[in-house]
């Protein structure tokens, strides 16, 4: 219990720090600020996917789809509500829209999670990928949210403070979930499904929970993204986006939250740092991914610790 309160203290500290930084954020260069927000959003995405792919050992390739659902739901909510609300209450609208986006994504997660239970490994990967693509295709044909040309005019509510506060909450919530007595079941399902069910753990329930919770936070990240970029288009949520997030999780070391966070930071900053190399930038990026995987196949940032059964 002591450790738990210790962790809470860190959480409060992180949120206060984000809030503090946020008040001074106007003095930073807008480009760096934007990239820092990208980092925060990617942390939320990677940590939430880590619950599904890392802790629970499923292989989802549809995270961009959940992000899209959350992003569009949040954007539509705040576009509709903002004109009616006094400016003082706008942060509430923002929070509400993020929550709604998260819930919409969670509902989608449920819809994907439940039918996919019979599937494993690559089959689950293909089904989640398929769902992600279907979401994209549906959005592309929904003229009410802009269709192929995208949804514009989303208010700019996302700030550095909001992003990192939410990132801290995501990390905290998922870590608490996994480390709780209940949550040990995720790791049991990951390690050995048959043994887990023999011990009275219901793998189905854990898998669905992982999908729903993971999707919820992906939806929140989508909402942050929407209010950061102020524009959404369906092509931004294709399967390459899901792959980007999967790479963060695997490079960070599946199931190792600290490593996944570090990988999310690294993989967001790396392409920006490489911009100076102009047209060979993405070639270098690809080479670095291969090199990193060769050098640290267990994941980059395992901090010298190993947990049995997480290979």
């Amino acid at each position: 219990m002591n450790h738990q309160t210790g962790a809470k203290r860190y959480l409060v500290l992180a949120i206060l720090l984000s809030a503090g930084v946020s008040t001074f954020s106007h003095i930073f260069n807008r480009y760096y600020l934007g990239v820092a927000i990208d980092v925060g959003i990617n942390i939320v995405l990677a940590v939430s996917l880590n619950l599904i792919n890392g802790h629970t050992g499923q292989f989802s390739l549809g995270h961009a789809g959940f992000m899209a659902v959350g992003g569009y739901a949040a954007a539509v909510t705040s576009i509709q509500l903002s004109p009616w609300v006094p400016p003082a209450l706008l942060p509430l609208v923002f929070l509400g829209s993020l929550l709604l986006g998260g819930l919409a994504a969670a509902a989608t997660g449920l819809a994907v999670g439940v039918p996919s239970l019979r599937l494993r490994g690559d089959y689950l990967a293909i089904v989640s990928l398929g769902f992600g693509e279907i979401i994209r295709v549906v959005l592309q044909n929904m003229e009410s949210v802009g269709g192929a040309s995208g949804l514009k005019g989303i208010p700019k509510y996302t700030t550095l403070g909001w992003t990192f506060a939410l990132a801290a909450i995501t990390v905290y919530a998922i870590a608490c979930l996994v480390n709780s007595t209940y949550g040990r079941g995720f790791i049991a399902v990951h390690d050995d499904e048959v043994a887990a069910s023999a011990m009275g753990i219901n793998p189905t329930r854990y898998k669905v929970t992982a999908f729903v919770v993971g999707a919820f936070f992906a939806g929140v990240a989508g909402g942050l993204y929407a209010h950061h970029k102020q524009f959404l288009s369906p092509t931004g949520f294709d399967f390459m986006k899901s792959i980007d997030i999967v790479v963060m999780v695997i490079l960070g070391g599946m199931g190792r939250t600290a490593g996944v966070i570090a990988a999310a930071i690294l993989l967001t900053l790396l392409p920006e740092v490489l911009r100076g190399f102009a047209d060979i930038r993405m070639i270098l990026y690809a080479l670095l991914i291969i090199g990193l995987m060769m050098a640290r196949p267990q994941g980059l940032f395992t901090l010298g610790r190993s947990r049995p059964g997480t290979t």
Binding site: I243, V246, V247, I250, L251, M254, M282, I283, Y285, A286, L287, I289, I290, M293, M294, P297, Q298, T311
Partner: peptide
């Protein structure tokens, strides 16, 4: 081959890396 006895997911990411490398090159 250097990753033959490593986790399959490490190989998967390497494969994605190789794919990106070929495409961007």
């Amino acid at each position: 081959r250097p990753l033959r006895n490593r986790p399959k997911l490490a190989v998967l990411i390497t494969a994605i890396g190789v794919s990106l490398l070929i495409e961007y090159t």
